[in-house]
């Protein structure tokens, strides 16, 4: 269902890491030879990926494979962690986000993020949405309209329109997560990164978020990390499978990208034995 929406021609090509990936026709972001370090620990090694406009890309793989680490380096959230460092290039509309003179704050405004656990601010629902536009100095004709628009796009408006001044913490977990999505949308980013956005939600709330992602795809580029393979199969146009590789010499663990392709190809016709083992539930 999800891959049928993808009309791009499918050429396969070998990437440097050995992963086979489809050519993304309208790439918004491009990850080129990226290593991510925490101090001396290399968490992710030599990743090459592309994220296309109006596509959902899922990053899947077992725990400790570096998929969340990679996601957090896509909008420089890793800058907040002492000792974190990225090598290689992450291009956003052709511009390296780790390049000299690049403002990480502007990067994060253009590339938004939704976290694993809903993290609404302890403010009113209204102020949660208005926060981003206010701090980034966005020119807004009517903040009320922007709040309504963001909440509507996040499929939350009808549920909260009568209690905008109430604390966001009074919402249910699923509503809080949709609020966080609305908050991310409010600053009009190009890309939305989602780090296991449904990990703390029940199945019904999860379904609503997944439906929402399908709608958001019309306007945004979405990258989602998920532990749930069914979720990847349901929502993603493309899927990248990561795993943890243990070096034979040193015993050091590091995350590598094994295979990248359309979701249909990854799940139906995996080219790598490790991918097949993982999606068929033989490990991980």
């Amino acid at each position: 269902m999800s891959s049928s929406a993808d009309s791009a021609p499918m050429h396969l090509r070998a990437t440097q890491s050995g992963a086979v990936g489809p050519v993304v026709t309208r790439p918004v972001m491009r990850v080129e030879g990226v290593d991510v370090y925490y101090g001396d620990f290399r968490a992710v090694t030599d990743v090459n990926l592309e994220f296309g406009l109006n596509e959902i890309t899922a990053l899947i793989g077992p725990s400790g494979c570096g998929k969340s680490t990679l996601l957090r380096s896509l909008n420089r959230m890793n800058d907040l962690i002492d000792g974190a460092r990225v090598e290689g290039e992450i291009l956003f509309h052709g511009e390296n986000i780790y390049g000299k003179g690049v403002d990480p704050i502007e990067v994060r405004r253009r590339i938004g993020m939704v976290f694993q656990k809903p993290n609404p601010f302890p403010k009113s629902i209204y102020d949660n949405i208005a926060y981003g536009p206010r701090v980034t100095g966005m020119r807004v004709d009517s903040m009320d309209d922007l709040v309504e628009e963001s909440l509507t796009r996040a499929a939350l408006w009808d549920e909260v329109k009568d209690k905008l001044k109430q604390s966001a913490l009074g919402l249910s977990g699923g509503q809080q997560q949709r609020l966080c999505i609305a908050r991310a949308i409010s600053v009009r980013p190009d890309v939305i990164l989602m780090d296991e956005p449904c990990a703390s939600l029940d199945p019904i709330a999860t379904m609503r978020i997944e439906d929402l992602m399908q709608e958001l795809r019309e306007q945004y580029t979405i990258v989602i990390v998920t532990h749930n393979m069914q979720q990847a199969a349901r929502v993603a146009d493309r899927t990248a499978f990561f795993t943890a590789q243990v070096s034979e010499g040193t015993g050091a663990r590091t995350g590598v990208l094994v295979e990248y392709g359309t979701t249909a190809q990854i799940f139906e016709d995996p080219q790598d034995q490790r991918t097949e083992d993982y999606i068929s539930g033989r490990f991980g």
């Binding site: 909008n75 959230m77 907040l80 704050i105 502007e106 994060r108 405004r109 938004g112 993020m113 976290f115 656990k117 993290n119 609404p120 601010f121 302890p122 926060y131 981003g132 701090v135 980034t136 966080c180 908050r183 991310a184 409010s186 600053v187």
Partner: peptide
């Protein structure tokens, strides 16, 4: 920490995060 991260992810700088969140 999650509140600081949420603020940073919206493009707030450190001073804004400190004072407003």
């Amino acid at each position: 920490m999650s509140l600081r991260q949420g603020s940073a992810a919206l493009g707030a700088n450190r001073m804004q995060t400190s004072l407003r969140v």
